[in-house]
Design a binder for these strands. Structure first.
Length: 1182
RNA sequence: GCGCAUAUGGCGGAAUUGGCAGACGCGCUACUUUGAGGUGGUAGUGGGGUAACCUGUGCAGGUUCAAGUCCUGCUAUGCGCACCA
C-alpha cells in the first residue's frame, strides 16, 4: 500500500468509539432527562433537566430510507444518501436544532426465507447476521445516527405495533360523507338491516319464510365486513408460482414479479385487501401540500390514474339486462358501433346466444389461461369473439353487437366499454381486424389530419344534438343530457386498485386474526384482542408451503388450531407493512404502551412552532407554462394577455381548501395571473394595469390597493414586484381568517412559484413566514445573510423534515406509507395528514465507464467492426449485443482492457487508438454482481478512509443526478484531506509518527500524541485577506448546505485550503472555524484536528458537534476595487479595474479609454453604451 | 406509442438575476523535492494559430447591446407509464 496521506486508520475508529461512548448524537424527546455533561445539554443549557416540548430547541427530523439488510452488504449507492443526510444532520445540530436522525432495518424479506427453505436455518438467524454486517459497515462510515433508536421490523416489540395498526385499519371504514376513515362502530346499516325487524320489507318477497334474528346479525356482519378498510376478497389475484405467493399490483411490472422477474398469472384466491382506493382522491390532492420532486409526484399521480368521465347504461333489447360502461369521451357516444365486455364479465353467460356459446366459452378459457405477460406482449394482435347479443346505443337507438375481448380489463371501470373505433386506437385496431363499422364523430381541428384513429379533441360531427360543439362542451352537454334522462352520470375512475395485503410466506408479520365458525357453520374472521399482541410466528422445521399449497404457517397445526376451536389466519403481511410506519416508531422506540407517545409524535412530527400558522395547502406551479400560454394568446393578436383563462384554482385544490377550512375558492384565479400579466406587460410595454375579468383571487387592483389589502410586513408594492433586481415577492391577502401567501422563488431548475394557503391562528403580525418552502431561496440568503446561518432561516415543517432515498419506492413504500398515515391521522393517532414533508431522490451511482468494441459473435477477438455498423445495441448477459446493419450477423461487444483500452475521442464518438477507424461504445452500467462492477465501501474505507469516501460520494455531482463512479476521483478528495492535515500538522512530527508506527507491533491511537501542530499556526489576529478567504468559504458552504449542493460546498473548502497553503502564518481562530465547516463532511479528521488544536493551546476542546455554526460577515467580503469586462459589440475586449461603487459615467469613461478597447472605437460611431454597474460595460459601435 | 427530465473540455462537473464559459477535482504535460517514487510541491492544460487573433456549451433558427441561460423546431440519451376505455 502506498504511503497514507494521514493516519485515518487510527483516527476514525477512535472518534467512532468516542461518539458511541458519549452517545453524542442522542436525540432527546420531550420529558426525557438530558444527562449532565451531554454536549447537547451544555449547548442548550438543559444539562440535568427534563425539558418539555416548549423548552427543547426546534426539531429537525432527517430520515434515510429504511434499508433491507441483504446478505450482499452495502454498495456505494447506500452511503450516497446516508452521507447527504448525515452532513445535513450535523449541520442542523450545529445550528442548534434538536436533530432526530435514526437508522433501522426493514428486515422481513424473501432472501432470508429462501435461504431457510434451502438449508433449514431459521430466517431470524440469517437476518440477524445480515443486520450485524450492515451495522458494522454503516458504523465504519461515522454517520451520526442515534443508535439508541435502532429498530427492526422483525423484532416482536416492533411488529406488535404493525399488527396493532393493522387492527386499526381492520376496525375502520371509509365514510364518504366525511371523506375519512372512521371506527367501524360509527357505520350505519342500511334501512333493511336496521332495527329489530328481521324481515325488511324490501327483501320480503325475495326471502322465503321468516328469517330468524341471528340471520339479521349475520347479514349485518357481512355488511360490516364488506365495509372494513381491511377486508377479505375472492377476486383473481396476481399469483407468482415461482415465488409461491401472491403479489400486489405495485409489485408486478410488465406481467413479471418486481423481485426476480418471474411470470405472474391471474388466479382467484381468498385474500386480505386494504382499501387504499378510498383514499385515492386525498392521496392525489395532498401531493400538492408536500415538497417532493415533480417526477416523483407525477409517478404517484400516474399510478393513482384519476380520470373523469361518465358512466352510461346500454340496454339489451328484449331482456332485463343492461350494460354499464365507463368512458372519458361521452362526446363520442354517437360513434359507438359495438360494445366489448371483458371475458370475465358476469353478464357474458347471461347474454350469449346458443350459437355463440361454444366459441365464447373457448375464448374465455383462452383468455383465462393467458398470463398478464402474454397479454401485454401480444398486445399488438387483438383477439375476441362475438356473443351473438346486441345492445341499443343509448343516444341514437342503433343496434350494436356485443363482443368479448381481453383488451378490456375486468378490473378497470365497469369491465365493459362502448367501442368508438373512429377515435380510439384500440377500438380502431379491433374494428379493423373484425370488420366492424367505423363512424366519424369528431372533426380534427386541422382538416388535413385523417379522422380515422384521431383520438385528440376536436369538434363533434354526426352526433345529433351535440354537432358543432368542441369536445369539452360536447362532453358537458351530453353528460347533462344523460343525467337528466337517468341514463348515465358523471363519474371519476381510478387506476389504483385495492392493496392485496396477504402473502403466502413464513417470514412476515402474522395477521392478528382468527377464524371462527358462526351459527350457520360459516367461517368468520375476528380480531385477536390487543392484549394478545404480538402474534408470534410458530417454530417450523420446514419453511416450504404445504403439499396442498397452503402457506408455510399452516404446517404448524398446534399453532393454527386454538383451544376454542378457532383457527389462525396463516397468511402473513407483505414486506411493505413494516416500512409503512417505521418513521413513527423512531419517535419513541422504547414505548411499550403506544407505537409512540402523543407528546413525542406531536413534537417531532407536528409543526407547532410555526408561529401560529398551519399550512393548509401549498401548490407549486411553473410559470413557464403560463408564459407560453400568454405569449401564444398574444400571437393571435386578438386577446389581451390578462384575459387568458388558464389559471383558475384547480377543482382538486379548491375541494381541499373547502374541506379544510370551509372556504370556497373555486372561482379564484391562481397567482399565476400575477406573473403572467406582469410578464406580458413587461414584454409588451402595455399599461395601465387593469383586469378585464372578475373573480380574480389576487388581482392587479389588489396589488395596487396594497395599504388596505396587504397589511402583511412582508408584502411588497407592485413596483417592487416589477423591479428587475427583486427576485422574490410575497403577496398576502386575508380572507375570512385565511392568509393567502404567494411567493415566487428561484429553484435550481428555474423559476418556481409557490402558493401557500395558511390558516391563521393568532394575530396578523405573527404570520411571518419569510423563509421559503425549500430553505434554498437565494434572495433570503442575500437579504438576511447573517440570519441564514441559524435556525430562523429554516421554515418549520410538519412531518419528516427531510427524507432521502432512491426512486425505486415511488409507488410502493411511498404510496402505502402515505395511506397508512392518513388512516392514523383520521383516527386521531397522528397529527399530520402527510408523513414526509420534503423528499429528495438520490441519483443512481453507476459503475466505472467501460469501452466495448464489436465483433461478429464466435469470432472474437479479431475482426473488430466499427460500432456505427451495428444496430439495435442492447445490454444482454453482462455485455452488449447488436446486429450488423449490412449482414444481419449478431455482433457481440467485447469489453476492452489493457492497452486495447486506449481510445480517443473524435467528434461525438470514441475510436481505438491502434485501429483508429474502429468506433467503440462507451457506457456506464448499473452496478451489479453479475457485471462485477460493484464497488465495496469496505475496500474504499480501508484504502482511503471513511472521510474520503464520504467526501467523494458528495463531490461526484448533484445528489439527485445519476453519475458514474471513478476510483481516481476518490484519490482527489483523499489528497485534499491530506492537504488539510498538513495545514495543521508538523511534517517532522509526522515522520517521527510514521517511524513509531512501523516499529510498534500493534499501533493504537495513543501514538497520535507524537504528532504536533504545524508551527505556522499561532494565536494571532488574522490578516484581512485571510479573513476574507475564510468568510467567503463560510458563506459558500452555508448557502450550499441549505440548497443541498454538497459538491460545490466541497470545492469551496478546496479553494480555501489551496489558498491557506500559501500563507506563512495560520491564525488559530481562523483555522478553528474552518474545521467547523469541514466537520459535517469529514467528521473524523475534523475532530482529531479540533482536539489537537485546542490541547496545543492549553484549552479544553468544546464539543465540535455542538459548536454553533459559524456566521459570515458580509462586510469582510466587500471589495474596494473590482475587475469588470468591457466588450465592444458584445465581444470581450478588455478588463478594467475600477472602484466597486463606481457609477455608470465613471465606468463608461474608463471603458472608452481602456487600452485594448480604443482600436475598436477608432473611426466608428458609438451608437449605444450599456453599463451595468459592478458587472460589465458593452459599447455598441457601427 | 404517451409523459417527464437531461445534453457544457479527454472524464465527473461549476457558472444561483441573461452580463469574463469551463470554478473544483480527475487525467495529461513540464519542472522540482527524493537514494527511489503509484509521494509531496510549482506551473500549464477547451480547440486552432509562433503571435495578434479566431473559434467554442447536442443540431437548426429566433429574441437581445449581450444567450450555456429565454423562445420555436429537431436530434440523442436517461427515467417513468403502457390495451386504464
Amino acid at each position: 500500500m502506498s504511503r497514507r496521506q494521514y493516519p485515518f486508520h487510527l483516527i476514525e475508529p477512535k472518534w467512532q468509539a468516542k461518539w458511541d461512548a458519549e452517545q453524542t448524537f442522542r436525540a432527546f424527546n420531550p420529558g426525557q432527562p438530558v444527562p449532565d455533561g451531554h454536549p447537547f445539554g451544555i449547548r442548550h443549557s438543559l444539562a440535568g433537566k427534563s425539558p418539555a416540548s416548549a423548552e427543547l430547541p426546534r426539531k429537525f427530523y432527517i430520515l434515510d430510507m429504511f434499508p433491507y439488510p441483504s446478505g450482499a452488504g452495502l454498495h456505494v449507492g447506500h452511503p450516497e444518501g446516508y452521507t447527504a443526510t448525515d452532513i445535513l444532520a450535523r449541520y442542523r445540530r450545529a445550528q442548534g436544532f434538536n436533530v432526530l436522525h435514526p437508522m433501522g432495518w426493514d428486515s422481513f424479506g424473501l432472501p432470508a426465507e429462501q435461504y431457510a427453505v434451502k438449508t433449514g436455518q431459521h430466517p431470524r438467524k440469517t437476518t440477524e447476521e445480515n443486520i450485524s454486517n450492515f451495522t458494522r459497515q454503516i458504523k465504519s462510515l461515522g454517520f451520526s445516527y442515534d443508535w439508541s433508536r435502532e429498530v427492526a421490523t422483525t423484532d416482536p416489540e416492533y411488529f406488535r405495533w404493525t399488527q396493532w395498526i393493522f387492527l386499526q385499519i381492520y376496525n375502520s371504514w371509509f365514510n364518504l360523507e366525511t371523506n375519512r376513515a372512521e371506527p367501524i362502530s360509527t357505520l350505519k346499516y342500511p334501512t333493511e338491516l336496521q332495527g329489530k325487524d328481521p324481515l325488511p320489507r324490501v327483501q320480503a318477497d325475495q326471502q322465503a319464510g321468516p328469517a330468524p334474528a341471528p340471520n339479521l346479525e349475520a347479514r349485518r356482519r357481512a355488511y360490516r365486513d364488506s365495509k372494513r378498510l381491511a377486508f377479505v376478497s375472492e377476486a383473481p389475484v396476481n399469483w407468482c408460482p415461482e415465488l409461491g405467493t401472491v403479489l400486489a399490483n405495485e409489485e408486478v411490472i410488465d406481467g413479471k414479479s418486481e423481485v426476480g422477474g418471474f411470470p405472474v398469472v391471474r388466479k382467484p384466491m381468498r385474500q386480505w385487501m386494504l382499501r387504499i382506493t378510498a383514499f385515492a382522491e386525498r392521496l392525489l390532492a395532498d401531493l400538492d401540500t408536500i415538497d417532493w420532486s415533480d417526477s416523483l409526484k407525477e409517478m404517484q399521480r400516474n399510478w393513482i390514474g384519476r380520470s373523469e368521465g361518465a358512466e352510461v347504461e346500454f340496454q339489451i333489447p328484449n331482456s332485463k339486462f343492461q350494460i354499464r360502461v365507463f368512458t372519458t369521451r361521452p362526446d363520442t357516444l354517437f360513434g359507438a358501433t359495438y360494445m366489448v365486455l371483458s371475458p370475465e364479465h358476469a353478464l357474458v353467460k347471461e347474454i350469449t346466444t346458443k350459437e355463440h356459446a361454444e366459441a365464447v366459452k373457448r375464448y374465455q378459457q383462452f383468455a383465462a389461461g393467458r398470463s398478464d405477460l402474454e397479454r401485454t406482449e401480444l398486445a399488438k394482435e387483438k383477439t375476441g369473439v362475438f356473443t351473438g347479443a346486441y345492445a341499443t346505443n343509448t343516444v341514437n337507438g342503433e343496434k350494436i353487437p356485443i363482443w368479448i375481448a381481453d383488451y378490456v380489463l375486468a378490473s378497470y371501470g365497469t369491465g365493459a366499454i362502448m367501442a368508438v373505433p373512429a377515435h380510439d386506437t384500440r377500438d380502431f385496431e379491433f374494428a379493423t381486424k373484425f370488420n366492424l363499422p367505423i363512424i366519424q364523430v369528431v372533426q380534427p381541428p386541422d382538416p388535413s389530419i385523417d379522422w380515422q384513429g384521431f383520438t385528440d379533441e376536436g369538434t363533434s360531427v354526426n352526433s345529433g344534438f351535440i354537432d358543432g360543439l368542441p369536445t369539452a362542451e360536447a362532453k358537458k352537454t351530453i353528460t347533462a343530457w344523460l343525467e337528466e334522462k337517468g341514463l348515465g352520470k358523471k363519474t371519476i375512475n381510478y387506476k389504483l386498485r385495492d392493496w392485496l395485503f396477504s402473502r403466502q410466506r413464513y417470514w412476515g408479520e402474522p395477521f392478528p386474526i382468527v377464524w371462527k365458525r358462526d351459527a350457520a357453520g360459516n367461517l368468520q374472521h375476528e380480531a385477536v384482542p390487543e392484549k394478545s399482541l404480538p402474534v408470534l410466528p410458530p417454530v417450523l422445521d420446514d419453511y416450504k408451503p404445504t403439499a396442498d399449497g397452503q402457506p408455510p404457517l399452516a404446517r404448524a397445526q398446534e399453532w393454527v388450531q386454538l383451544k376454542s376451536g378457532a383457527v389462525r389466519e396463516t397468511n402473513t403481511m407483505p414486506q411493505w407493512a413494516g416500512s409503512c410506519w417505521y418513521y413513527l416508531r423512531y419517535l419513541d422506540t422504547a414505548n411499550g404502551r403506544r407505537f409512540a407517545s402523543r407528546e413525542a409524535e406531536r413534537y417531532w412530527m407536528g409543526s407547532e412552532r410555526t408561529a401560529g400558522m398551519v399550512p393548509l395547502i401549498q401548490a407549486v406551479e411553473w410559470p413557464k407554462i403560463a408564459r407560453n400560454l400568454t405569449e401564444r394568446a398574444f400571437d393571435d393578436g386578438k386577446r389581451p394577455p390578462f384575459a387568458v383563462e388558464f389559471s383558475r384554482v384547480s377543482d382538486d385544490l379548491a375541494a381541499r381548501i373547502r374541506q379544510l377550512c370551509g372556504e370556497d375558492v373555486s372561482d379564484f384565479r391562481h397567482s399565476l395571473d400575477v406573473y403572467a400579466v406582469r410578464h406580458a406587460f413587461r414584454e409588451h410595454g402595455i399599461g395601465p394595469l387593469e383586469a378585464t375579468r372578475g373573480n380574480i383571487a389576487i388581482t392587479i387592483e389588489d396589488i395596487e390597493r396594497l395599504p388596505e389589502i396587504l397589511e402583511h410586513p412582508d408584502s411588497v408594492s407592485f413596483d417592487d414586484v416589477h423591479k428587475p433586481g427583486c427576485k422574490r415577492f410575497v403577496i398576502t391577502k386575508r380572507i375570512n381568517g385565511i392568509i393567502f401567501v404567494v411567493e415566487e422563488e428561484k429553484s435550481r431548475r428555474g423559476q418556481l412559484q409557490v402558493v401557500t394557503f395558511w390558516k391563521k391562528k393568532a394575530t396578523a403580525r405573527d404570520v411571518t413566514t419569510r423563509a421559503p418552502l425549500s430553505n434554498t431561496s437565494e434572495n433570503d440568503r442575500r437579504s438576511e445573510a447573517t440570519k441564514s446561518t441559524d435556525q430562523s432561516a429554516v421554515k418549520p415543517t410538519p412531518g419528516v423534515d427531510l427524507y432521502v432515498g432512491g426512486t425505486e419506492h415511488a409507488v410502493l413504500h411511498l404510496l402505502y406509507a402515505r395511506f397508512w398515515h392518513k388512516v392514523l391521522y383520521d383516527l386521531g393517532h397522528v397529527s399530520t395528514p402527510e408523513p414526509f414533508f420534503k423528499l429528495v431522490n438520490q441519483g443512481l451511482i453507476l459503475g466505472e465507464l467501460e469501452f466495448f468494441a464489436f465483433a461478429p459473435s464466435g469470432r472474437l477477438p479479431e475482426g473488430f467492426v466499427s460500432s456505427e455498423l451495428v444496430k439495435d445495441i442492447k445490454e444482454q448477459a453482462g455485455t452488449l449485443v447488436g446486429t450488423h446493419k449490412a449482414t444481419g450477423e449478431t455482433m457481440v461487444g467485447r469489453k476492452l482492457s489493457g492497452h486495447e483500452k486506449d481510445v480517443e475521442k473524435r467528434g461525438e464518438h470514441f475510436y481505438l487508438k491502434l485501429q483508429s477507424q474502429i468506433r467503440v461504445e462507451a457506457r456506464s452500467f448499473k452496478m451489479s454482481k453479475a457485471r462485477g462492477n460493484v464497488v465495496n465501501p469496505d475496500e474504499v474505507v480501508r484504502e482511503f478512509g471513511a472521510d474520503s469516501l464520504r467526501l467523494y460520494e458528495m463531490f461526484m455531482g448533484p445528489l439527485q443526478d445519476t453519475k458514474p463512479w471513478n476510483t481516481n476521483g476518490v484519490e482527489g478528495v483523499y489528497r485534499f484531506l491530506g492537504r488539510v492535515w498538513r495545514l495543521f500538522i508538523d511534517e517532522k512530527a509526522e515522520t517521527a509518527f510514521e517511524q513509531a508506527e512501523t516499529t510498534t507491533p500493534a499501533p493504537t491511537d495513543e501514538l497520535l500524541d507524537i504528532l504536533v501542530l504545524n508551527g505556522a499556526i499561532s494565536d494571532m489576529a488574522a490578516a484581512p485577506a485571510q479573513l476574507k478567504a475564510l468568510h467567503a468559504c463560510i458563506k459558500k458552504v452555508t448557502e450550499d448546505l441549505d440548497g443541498m449542493r454538497f459538491n460545490t460546498a466541497i470545492s469551496a473548502m478546496m479553494v480555501f485550503v489551496n489558498e491557506a497553503n500559501t500563507w506563512q502564518t495560520r491564525p488559530l481562530p481562523l483555522m478553528r472555524t474552518f474545521l467547523q465547516l469541514l466537520a459535517p463532511f469529514a467528521p473524523h479528521v475534523a475532530e482529531e484536528l479540533w482536539s489537537r488544536l485546542h490541547s496545543t493551546f492549553g484549552q479544553v476542546a468544546p464539543s465540535l458537534i455542538y459548536a454553533p455554526w459559524p456566521k459570515f460577515d458580509p462586510s469582510l467580503l466587500v471589495e474596494s476595487e473590482i475587475e469588470i469586462p468591457v466588450s465592444v459589440n458584445g465581444k470581450l475586449r478588455d478588463l478594467i479595474r475600477v472602484a466597486t461603487d463606481a457609477d455608470s459615467s465613471t465606468l463608461e469613461a474608463a471603458a472608452r479609454s481602456a487600452e485594448k478597447v480604443k482600436p475598436y472605437l477608432e473611426g466608428k460611431t458609438v451608437k449605444k453604451v450599456i453599463v451595468v454597474p459592478r458587472k460589465m460595460v458593452n459599447i455598441v459601435v457601427t
